[in-house]
């Protein structure tokens, strides 16, 4: 399988290293769209962005798991965040759809996982001073998965807390 034209992502900036060190640092995030909502992930955990290719099915894997993908010799599960995040809107796969491969720390081990995104916008600098905690009400997302919300001139960006998104055992069969 050829991984058609991975869209390069800027090298992980010092954003994570600076995490918690200085408050007014800028933060680079990868912004993407899912079910009509703009959300973002820290670039430090994003490995690459791939075009959508056929995935190997995982029978009885649950609604969360879309399938398996070979990323440079590694078997990477690709998941559908929609249901996990409490988003109900169905969305069609379009030419803009992408698979974003992340390296998420789970149980102290970095685990590769791909997520489906309706569209990837690009890398955005975020002023940490303009971050605020997620509001208790008013968003359709499951609040526990939201790390912070960034106010921008043209709206909001929801920054996901991936460790929590993948850390909860809610989906497992046991």
């Amino acid at each position: 399988m050829t991984h058609a034209a991975p869209t390069p992502v800027s090298a992980p900036g010092p954003s994570l290293a600076a995490h918690g060190a200085a408050d007014s640092e800028t933060h680079t995030v990868l912004s993407m769209a899912l079910a009509g909502t703009v959300f973002a992930l820290e670039t430090a955990i994003v490995l690459e962005v791939l075009d959508v290719v056929p995935l190997s099915p995982v029978p009885n894997g649950g609604a969360f798991v879309k399938g398996l993908l070979n990323v440079r010799g590694k078997v990477v599960p690709v998941v559908e965040l929609r249901a996990r995040l409490g988003l109900t809107t169905e969305s069609e796969r379009t030419v803009d759809s992408r698979i974003v491969v992340l390296s998420v720390p789970m149980d102290g081990e970095d685990t590769l996982v791909g997520i489906m995104a309706d569209k990837v916008h690009g890398v955005v600098d975020i002023d940490t001073a303009r971050l605020s905690d997620p509001p208790a009400v008013g968003i359709s997302w499951r609040a526990e998965f939201v790390k912070s919300i960034s106010r921008r001139d043209d709206g909001f960006i929801v920054i996901l807390d991936v460790e929590k998104v993948f850390g909860v055992d809610g989906d497992t069969g046991r």
Partner: peptide, 16 residues
């Protein structure tokens, strides 16, 4: 299969 697929019981692993 990693943590994400820990709940999948029918398979012991994957291969390329």
């Amino acid at each position: 299969l990693g943590r994400i697929l820990a709940h999948v019981r029918d398979f012991s692993g994957a291969t390329i």
